[in-house]
Nucleic acid binder design. Structure first.
Length: 274
DNA sequence: CTGTTGTGC
DNA sequence: GCACAACAG
């Protein structure tokens, strides 16, 4: 009997290991990979383009920037939500795994403390992800990390499940097609917006998403600016230039790109090349 | 996929 | 407060 004990133990250990791998509970390895992404990036891209780190992708901001394992954000305390989030979306982030939705938690990395999810309860508004949960399905840990109240804005359900969802799916399509895209998502925060909850979470009137694809020729950029309302229109009716979003937000996007490339890409409001 | 609400312990 | 199931676009 004894000769079976060790094989059984080894099998049990292996099974446990694979179980946690599959569940994506191995946050430690993910942390190593993704935090490295912020500071070091890769040696070189296969197509000869200059590798961009997540840090290089970050917009300018006077608000509180925090780095999570798989995305970064800038929290606006007045409006009790992020003014923008930034993440690198890779084809490998997109899987068909079915994770159980966790509860939204306060983001402890934001010093001023983020809003509580109760502000949204019975408000009539969705807890709309900025970094979509669907963009972070490589592991359970990555998925759960999107369920922080620093990563949501109040959204009308018909908008969130409608054209905004369509835009998120299109972004995932680009990530699969080009293997890797850089994504900045946010809203136009201004004074006198409607608020919800006891903490007065602002309800933005417009949301935007900027997608950048890198290549040896400077890459391509695509920006969408959408009114926060239900619509049957196409997402392509809401293409704008990054320059326009910079005007509205006062934020400088992709400042780390060489100026000649940045100026050209950010002036464009065309989906040509995508 | 994007979400909320109701029930029960 | 949390788990589970049902429901909606």
């Amino acid at each position: 009997m004894r000769k079976y004990i060790y094989p059984i133990i080894i099998l049990a250990c292996a099974a446990t290991y694979y179980f946690y791998q599959d569940n994506g509970s191995d946050a430690y390895s993910e942390e190593n990979i993704r935090l490295e992404e912020i500071t070091n990036g890769k040696e070189n891209n296969s197509d000869g383009s200059i590798p961009l780190t997540r840090k290089a992708l970050l917009p300018s901001s006077e608000n509180q920037i925090v780095h999570h394992h798989t995305y970064s954000l800038s929290y606006n305390e007045q409006h009790e939500q992020a003014e923008w989030t930034a993440h690198i979306l890779r084809a490998s982030d997109i899987t068909s795994r079915d994770y159980k939705r966790p509860y939204f938690e306060i983001d402890d990395k934001v010093k001023t403390k983020t809003a509580h999810w109760r502000n949204y309860k019975k408000s009539g508004y969705d807890r709309g992800h900025l970094v979509p949960a669907g963009d972070r399905k490589a592991t359970k840990a990555a998925y759960d990390e999107t369920f922080l109240t620093s990563n949501i804005s109040p959204q009308i359900h018909e908008f969130n499940a409608g054209i905004w969802n369509t835009l998120e799916q299109k972004t995932r399509y680009y990530a699969k097609r080009y293997d890797e895209v850089y994504v900045v998502t946010g809203s136009i925060l201004k004074k006198n917006l409607k608020t919800i909850g006891t903490e007065k979470v602002s309800v933005p009137e417009r949301f935007y998403k900027i997608i950048y694809r890198n290549d040896a020729n400077g890459g391509k950029m695509l920006a969408f600016l959408m009114p926060h309302k239900e619509t049957d229109a196409s997402i392509y009716d809401f293409i704008t230039s990054v320059d326009r979003i910079e005007e509205l937000t006062g934020t400088d996007f992709f400042a780390s790109l060489p100026d000649s490339i940045e100026d050209k890409l950010e002036a464009s409001s065309s989906s040509k090349g995508w």
